[in-house]
Nucleic acid binder design. Structure first.
Lengths: 332, 332
DNA sequence: CTGTTAGCGCGTTCAA
DNA sequence: TTGAACGCGCTAACAG
C-alpha cells in the first residue's frame, strides 16, 4: 500500500518497473524508441499501480490542457443547449474536454468569462450575441484560438446560420399566404441576431410595396412572447414573426388563451426549430437552424486551429423554412 | 515589448517591480506580511504587464484546479440542462469553473467520464441514472469528493427529488378524477428513476383495489412517447402516466393527431415540469421537479466538501403536483 | 535505447 | 519583511 493517499506518481511506476522516469514517460506516451520488453514492464507496473499521468502536470509542461472553453449567454436556451451538445460530443470524440460558462445574458460577463476561461483552456468557442462589435474585435485578439458562433470578426474562424435569408424566406411564406400586415417581435435591441432580422425585414418591405412590418419590442423568452400578445392583437396584424421559437410559443399560448384561433385569426412563425416546436398545438411554423450541427462544426474549426491547420472561410448554414400548423391564409 | 508572445510570467513582474518572485506571489495573493509600498509597486507592474498568474501552474502547486466536473446523461434533456444551469451559475458565483461531460445515455461512458474528468478537477457532480448500484458504489470511492444527483450511495452527499412520493401524488390525482384504468409509460428499465416510479405504482395499487396500472415499455424522449400512442389507445386506459414531460408531450401530440381529445378521451400526466410543459395545448399536468434548484444545492454540497465542511444529510426536494389542462374526469 | 538534468510557472518553506 | 531555494508531476533536451 502506497504511503501517500494523494496519488501515485510517475516515480512510483519507475521504481516498480526498475527504470527511470523518462522511460516510463516515453513508454506510456508511445515513444517508439523504447525496448518493447521495457514497455511491457512499464505498462504492467502502471496498471498494477493504477497509474495515470497527472493531466495538470502534463498541461503545464506541454502547454496545452486538452480542454476548450465554451461561452454561452444562457444554458437555459434550447438553441445554445443544442450547440453545446453537438460541440461537447464532437470534442469528446477527439479526446478534448469542455469547460462551459454561462454569461447570464450579460455583456460584461461575456467579456470577462472569455478572458478568464481562456487561461485554463487551449481555446474558446464564443457565443456572445450581445457584445458590441468593437469590443468583440478587440477581445478576440487576446483569445486566439477562437471560434465565433453566429458572429464574425475579421478573419476569425466562425460558424453561423444565415438569419437574414431565413427570415426572408419566412416573410415570403407569409406574403404568399396573403398577409400584408405583419408584426415582428424583436429580440434584444443591440444583438446582432436582431440586427440581421431587421435588415431582412427592411429588404423585404422594400421589394414588396403594400406590405407592412411593424416592430414590437419584445425579448427572447416565453414570458416576453406571452407579454406581447396584447400588443400583437391590438396591432391589427394578421401574422406575427417571433424572434425565436420561445417567443413564438409564449405568444401562441397567450393568444389562444384569449380565445383567438391560430392560424385562422393570426399566423405565427418562430425561429430556430427547437425540438419542442413540433409539439405545440398547432405545431409551429419556423425556420430550422441546425444548432447541433453548428456545434459540431464549431468544434471542427477549433480542432483545425489547434492542429495548426488553416481555419477556412466562415461557415454559414442555411436554415430551412419549416411550414407546420401555425401559419395559414390571411383572414379576409 | 516582451520577447515572448507566449505570455508574461511572474518573473517579468518581479523584474519590473524590482523585487523577487516570492514578493510578487505574496503581494498578489494578499499575504499581509508584505510592505504596502511594495504591494502597490507589484500591483502596478502586474497591471502594466497585464499579468495574471497561470491557473495551470497554480493548480499544480496548490493541488486544486478551481474546477468541478459535471457528468450528465444527455445535454439535450431539459431536466439536466436546468440542473447544469443552476449548478454552473452557483459555482461561478464562488469562482469555480465547470467541466461538462455528456455520457450520451451510456453506462460505460458514465463510468469512464467520471474517472477521466476527476483528475483535472477538484470533484465531480455525478448524474448517472443508468449506472448499476454496485458499480456506482465502487466508483464513488475513487472519485471523492463526489455529489450524487438523484442517486445515493452510502454516505456520499446527494441531492435529489422524491420521485416516489411525487408519482404517488399524481396517481392520487388521477384516482380522484375517477380514473381506474391507467397506463404507465416506463423509462429505461434499469434506471433508478424508473424503479422509484414502479415502487410508487405498486404501493398505490396495493392501497387502492380496483385500480389497475399497466406498464408499457417506452423510453425517455418525444419519439418514445409518440411511438407509444397506439399502445396507449389500444389499452383502453383512461389516463396515461408518462415517465417524463418529453414522453408526455410526444404522446399528447400523437394522440391528438389521431383525433382523440385530451383530457376528454384521455388524461395525460408528465413528470419534471420542464419549461415547455405549460405551453402545450392543453397545458400539461405534471409534477414540478425544481431541477435548477437541485443544481444549486448540488453545488452547495460540493462547496462544503471542498471546504472540508460536513456534507450534511442527503437532500430530497419534494416535487409539486402541478395540475393543468391534460387531466380531467375519467370518461363515463 | 536509456538515464540524468533542466525546466514548465508558480507557492512556500527556510534563512537572513 | 524579504529573497533564495525547493518542489508540485511531468516531458524533452542532452548525454551516454
Amino acid at each position: 500500500m502506497p504511503r501517500s493517499p494523494k496519488g501515485v506518481t510517475i516515480a512510483d511506476v519507475a521504481a516498480r518497473a526498475g527504470v527511470s522516469l523518462s522511460t516510463v514517460s516515453r513508454a506510456l506516451n508511445g515513444n517508439p524508441t523504447v525496448d518493447p520488453a521495457l514497455v511491457e514492464r512499464v505498462r504492467d507496473a502502471a496498471a498494477a499501480l493504477d497509474y495515470t499521468a497527472s493531466p495538470v502536470a502534463r498541461s503545464l509542461v506541454l502547454g496545452r490542457t486538452q480542454t476548450v472553453a465554451v461561452i454561452v449567454p444562457d444554458l437555459g436556451n434550447p438553441t445554445f443547449q443544442a450547440i453545446l451538445r453537438g460541440l461537447s460530443r464532437a470534442a469528446a470524440a477527439d479526446d478534448y474536454h469542455v469547460l462551459v460558462a454561462d454569461s447570464a445574458e450579460s455583456v460584461d460577463e461575456e467579456r470577462v468569462l472569455a478572458g478568464a476561461t481562456r487561461r485554463r483552456t487551449d481555446g474558446v468557442i464564443l457565443c456572445a450575441p450581445r457584445l458590441p462589435q468593437a469590443e468583440l474585435d478587440s477581445l478576440v485578439g487576446g483569445l486566439r484560438p477562437v471560434v465565433l458562433v453566429n458572429r464574425t470578426s475579421g478573419a476569425v474562424p466562425a460558424v453561423g446560420a444565415d438569419y437574414r435569408r431565413a427570415l426572408g424566406a419566412e416573410l415570403a411564406h407569409l406574403h404568399e399566404l396573403g398577409h400584408r400586415r405583419i408584426v415582428y417581435l424583436a429580440g434584444v435591441e443591440l444583438s446582432v441576431a436582431n440586427a440581421a432580422r431587421l435588415e431582412a425585414i427592411a429588404e423585404f418591405v422594400d421589394a414588396h410595396p403594400g406590405t407592412e412590418v411593424a416592430e414590437i419590442p419584445c425579448g427572447v423568452d416565453f414570458e416576453a412572447g406571452a407579454g406581447a400578445a396584447q400588443a400583437v392583437l391590438a396591432s391589427g396584424a394578421t401574422a406575427a414573426l417571433a424572434f425565436n421559437d420561445l417567443v413564438a410559443m409564449g405568444l401562441l399560448s397567450a393568444v389562444q388563451a384569449q380565445g383567438r384561433r391560430v392560424p385562422d385569426d393570426l399566423s405565427i412563425v418562430g425561429f430556430d426549430d427547437i425540438p419542442f416546436a413540433r409539439y405545440t398545438t398547432p405545431p409551429l411554423t419556423t425556420a430550422a437552424v441546425p444548432a447541433e450541427e453548428l456545434g459540431t462544426h464549431a468544434w471542427s474549426r477549433m480542432r483545425d486551429l489547434l492542429h495548426g491547420a488553416e481555419p477556412g472561410d466562415p461557415l454559414t448554414l442555411q436554415p430551412e423554412l419549416t411550414v407546420r400548423g401555425t401559419t395559414g391564409p390571411a383572414p379576409a
